[in-house]
Simulated assay, not measured.
Amino acid sequence: MVTGPQSTPRSAKRMELDFPLGTDPVAIRRRVEALEHVLERAFTVPGINRKLGLDAVVGLVPIAGDLISGAMGLYLVWEARNLGMSKWQLARMTANVGFDTVLGAIPVAGDLFDFLFRSNSRNLKIIRKHLDKHHPHTRVIDA
């Protein structure tokens, strides 16, 4: 049996490249972008062509759903902390998640609010701005 890097199955290499677990800025950028996509834009609502994510879907479950989506949103804040972002930026991101969680917990109106106010997209914008300024090598140009 061969050991070493050549013996790694092809599927394991692919998974490693698709979801990096490192603490470097490139890996963090890929993780937060993937999580934001799942939370805010994973599905398209037929008829209105509006993107919908797990945040709005899980938010349909009263109280517990909003707490779960809030916890997932706080993961973005934790990753931002790992990047060394300022306390002001972290406070702003935490306020976005808190505002989304509290107002999302209101029955019916909160579900509409979750559909319109995308705290995770706002937080990703803050993270991207920080990364583009302090770690420009992490920027990916989409064609």
Rank of each mutant, 00 (worst) to 15 (best):
G73T: 03
M85P: 06
R118N: 14
P20R: 05
F43R: 08
A27I: 13
F113Y: 10
F43L: 15
L52P: 08
M72Q: 04
G70F: 02
E79G: 01
G53I: 05
G84W: 03
L74C: 12
L17S: 15
V58P: 08
D111V: 12
L74W: 02
L60K: 05
L90I: 04
T23Q: 13
R50C: 07
V57E: 07
W88M: 12
D66P: 00
A56G: 00
M93G: 02
R30Q: 14
G47Y: 00
P9Q: 04
G65E: 08
Y75I: 15
L35P: 03
I68R: 05
T94C: 08
M93Y: 01
W88G: 08
L35T: 07
G84L: 03
N49T: 10
W78D: 07
H37Q: 13
I63H: 00
R92L: 14
S69E: 14
R10T: 13
E40F: 03
A12P: 00
L52R: 12
V45W: 12
E79I: 03
I106M: 09
D55P: 06
P25K: 04
G65R: 01
G73C: 05
I63Q: 00
V38N: 13
A27H: 08
V26H: 06
K87D: 12
L17W: 10
V45K: 07
L103C: 11
K13F: 05
R41A: 15
G47S: 02
K13W: 09
A109I: 03
A27S: 15
V45M: 14
L116A: 15
E40H: 05
F19H: 13
F43G: 10
V57T: 11
D18A: 09
P107W: 10
F43C: 10
D55F: 03
F99V: 06
Q89Y: 00
L17P: 00
A109T: 08
D18C: 07
Q89R: 09
P9D: 05
P20E: 00
Y75F: 08
R41L: 11
F117Q: 09
A34G: 07
N96K: 02
M15K: 12
A91E: 00
M85T: 02
V32H: 02
R30N: 10
R50T: 14
E36T: 15
M93Q: 03
G70D: 05
V26P: 03
N96P: 01
T94N: 05
N96D: 12
